[in-house]
């Protein structure tokens, strides 16, 4: 991403998986990058089937979205539905000049025409597994897979 990202791009992490990745990217990528967070719970398309998840975080975008370059950040890109919801939510704050998408893992399986601009790794994962990305105290990443069950939130 170094060199490719606009110097004043704003990083927006999608809760919960994308939040800390956005934080790290914003500090690692050269330039001045304001940081925000988005919780897409109120924009999800599966509310009628699943209801609200137990813990909804507060969307916090402490900058002007209007005419800004926004880098949406998530841990795993799968169906594309979270990203669709995040884009919709962003537009309720203004009209960005450009939205890009950075993800750590692209596991395929898209159900919407959405692609990431920056991808850490591409993995082929069975549909009944969900990928769990976690960060240890020393900042090292670990990657795991666990059975998703019918109801797991799909990124």
């Amino acid at each position: 991403m170094r060199g490719a990202v606009a110097h004043d791009a704003r990083f927006v992490g999608i809760y919960s998986g994308g939040a800390w990745i956005a934080q790290r990217l914003a500090s690692m990528v050269p330039g001045e990058h304001p940081l925000g967070y988005i919780d897409v719970s109120f924009y999800r398309d599966d509310f009628a089937r699943k209801g609200l998840k137990p813990e909804v975080k507060r969307t916090d975008l402490p900058f002007d979205v209007e005419s800004a370059t926004i880098i949406l950040v998530d841990d795993v890109l799968y169906t594309g539905r979270s990203v669709r919801a995040a884009i919709n939510e962003l537009f309720d704050f203004g009209r960005p000049a450009r939205i890009e998408l950075a993800v750590l893992i692209d596991r395929g399986g898209r159900e919407l025409p959405i692609e990431a601009t920056y991808v850490g790794a591409r993995l082929a994962v069975a549909r009944d597994l969900s990928i769990v990305v976690s960060q240890a105290d020393d900042g090292r990443l670990s990657l795991g897979a666990e059975p998703s069950g019918g109801d797991a939130q799909r990124a």
Binding site: D39, V56, R58, D92, F93, G94
Partner: peptide, 20 residues
Amino acid sequence: LDTAVPFTSISERDVKKVPL
């Protein structure tokens, strides 16, 4: 009460509406 917390910020936005 926990769910109400993120809803407080919606009323502070320019577009005070979510599609839920």
